[in-house]
Every structure is written in structure tokens, then in C-alpha cells.
Amino acid sequence: MSFAIASIGLNSQTSIDNNLRIISHAVNEAAQAGAKLIVLPENACAMGRQDELAIRFDEICQFYQTLAQKQQIHLVAGTLPCPNRPDGSKVGGGRFRQTSLMIDPAGNIKARYDKIHLFRAMVNDSTGRYDESQTFEAGDEVVIANCMIDGVAVNVGMMICFDVRFPALAQQLRQQGADILTVPAAFTQRTGQAHWQLLLQARALDSQCMVIGSAQGGMHHIGSRVRETWGHSLIADANGQVVATTGEMTGEYQIVYANYTPSEQRQIRQNLPIFDCHRLS
């Protein structure tokens, strides 16, 4: 048995409502093509303007829940800035949690993951200095969504963007039973060109999981600023091989597809049982 996966790349701008319209079209197209697990990128609903987006958190959760139910899919809803921690307490200090949701075909939120590793770097681009800790509070919980997708029991380990640089997280997800890792992202053009594909393939090899990278791509106009992201949404199998990828972002969205076949992944793990040989964790 197997099921189809879709990774959607977006060129989100600052208009939340227009981005929601584009997301609806893209998810509908992927579902009509047969995808049962669909992954959206980081900041899918807006690049910038996180305060405005956080105010609409509950409304947009409902939008995603309705969309998943209508299309009868499992949906990894990119990321949303959430003003509350998982226990319901307020983050405070004008900051949020960067949250990724897994939503099932009944419209239920199966899992919530809050980004653990917050991006901090100097990049040779028009932004220069990035520090997500100014906007977000780091999460502290490793999350796996236990799903039944098109008759296949599958455990989905959830990551977000900068998380992909940390092999220990991917390995811990595998040790807790993950079969697939999802990576909604908005890599800068410079860091993405240098590292995006390498990191996705490396985490697939580290964990022997299929890795789904869904990325923002192209130019994003945020007030008077312009930010450029790398795009190139990509799916790598448990052997670290690229099975699907987009090229340069053209238009409002791009979609790539792959099939997840549990028997093939089990064979990869049996042929090279690295987690039976692991000694340092």
C-alpha cells in the first residue's frame, strides 16, 4: 500500500486574504491530483505582518480545518503565529509561538508543533540580520502526529525551517517512531541556494524517513522592504534521494508530488539498520 504526497511552494505576500485564496486553489489542485497528505510552507498566510496574522489565529485554524475536511486530506498547515502556548498560557512580551498544525480529514487538529530552533544569522542580502527570537518564543516539545492516511498507519514528525539544520531533532523523531518528517520553510535565497537541498537529504539519511520540504520562493514585498526566498520545494526518500523538486518559483504556487510506500522504506531501514548500531544517543 502507498499514498500520494504533495508539497506546495508559495510566493506569499502581505495580504492575508489573498494568500488564503491562493492556498485554497493550490490545495484543491493537489487534492484533485490524488494527494492525501499535503504540506504548506512556513508563513503560508503572510510574509511579515505577524501581529495581524496572530489576531486571526482561531479564524485561520478554522479555515484550514474546513479546507482539510472539504478535500478529505491530511494537511500540514504551514505555520501560524500563535499568541498562546500549548497549555493555553499567553506568550507575552509581544511575541508568539511559530506553530505548525496537522489537520485530519475530519477537520480535527491532530497535532501542534511549536518551532524549537529559532533562526539567527547574518546573511548577505537586503535584510542582513535575522533574529526570530525578537518575534517568537521557542517551543520545547518534540511532536509526532499519529495518522491513518488512505489506509496506511504513518507517524509524521513535525519540524519547521531552521529545525532542519539540527540532526539531533530528526534522529529523536525517528527514535520516537517517525516515518515521515515535514519541513515547512522560508529559507533566504542565499542560505537556501547553499544548503536547502543538502539539509533535506542529510536529515532523510540521518533519520531514514521520507522528508517533505515545502518552501516559500521568490520576491516578497513587505512594506518598503523586499525579501527573497529560495523556494525549490523538495521531497527526499529515506535513502536520501531526491524524488521530486520544483525549480525557480514561477506564479503564485508550485506543487510537487511523490508516493510514500511503507514497504520500500522498511527495506531501506532493514538493509542499513543504523539505529541498531547507534551508540551516542
Results as ranks from 00 to 15, higher is better:
179 D>I: 02
154 V>E: 12
247 G>N: 13
151 G>P: 08
92 G>H: 15
143 V>D: 08
153 A>S: 12
260 Y>P: 09
167 P>W: 09
105 P>Y: 01
87 D>I: 09
213 G>N: 02
260 Y>R: 04
70 K>I: 01
4 A>N: 13
5 I>A: 02
10 L>H: 10
3 F>L: 04
176 Q>W: 05
129 R>C: 06
2 S>W: 02
209 C>L: 00
94 G>V: 11
169 L>F: 11
51 D>M: 10
147 C>D: 08
83 P>Y: 07
92 G>L: 12
103 I>V: 12
108 N>I: 06
156 V>L: 04
173 L>M: 10
171 Q>C: 04
76 V>W: 04
122 M>D: 15
48 G>M: 07
261 T>N: 09
153 A>H: 07
220 H>T: 00
101 L>T: 08
67 L>E: 03
107 G>Y: 11
147 C>F: 04
3 F>R: 05
202 A>R: 09
94 G>I: 09
255 I>H: 02
191 T>Q: 14
173 L>V: 05
243 V>K: 03
187 F>V: 03
174 R>T: 02
165 R>E: 14
113 Y>L: 06
27 V>S: 05
204 A>R: 02
133 S>F: 07
147 C>R: 02
137 E>V: 13
74 H>Q: 02
149 I>V: 12
281 S>D: 09
75 L>F: 06
64 Y>T: 06
251 G>Q: 11
50 Q>P: 00
32 Q>F: 07
226 V>P: 07
189 Q>H: 07
136 F>R: 12
107 G>Q: 06
266 R>W: 10
84 N>L: 15
